[in-house]
């Protein structure tokens, strides 16, 4: 197995809604499966904070190697949602 250091984390820091005090979110939809090819900027999934829905774009091109948090999983701001292995 190649090292985990090459993988790029998908998290929610950049897209977390500004006008909320809430630090907990819920994954509501994944649009791609593990093993899918992604281009940087593709919408990977959608999470919800309070009643706001936010799309999470792929931070880099590559392969969606691992989905860490599934649909309906609750998480804290900053948690890793998935890992992408860059090209």
């Amino acid at each position: 197995m190649s090292s985990d250091d090459d993988r790029v984390a998908v998290d929610t820091d950049d897209v977390w809604p500004e006008d909320t005090d809430e630090d907990e979110g819920v994954v509501v939809n994944w649009f791609l499966r593990e093993g899918s090819r992604v281009d940087a900027g593709d919408d990977l999934c959608e999470f919800q904070v309070e009643k706001v829905s936010v799309d999470v774009p792929a931070p880099t091109s590559g392969t969606l190697e691992e989905i860490v948090l599934d649909e309906d999983d609750e998480f804290e701001r900053g948690n890793v949602l998935a890992w992408i292995r860059p090209d």
């Binding site: 819920v26 509501v28 939809n29 959608e46 999470f47 919800q48 009643k51 829905s53 309906d72």
Partner: peptide
């Protein structure tokens, strides 16, 4: 519809 605040059953997606 797959709206976050009205969870859909498995299937429509």
């Amino acid at each position: 519809m797959g709206i976050g605040w009205m969870p859909a059953p498995d299937g429509p997606k």
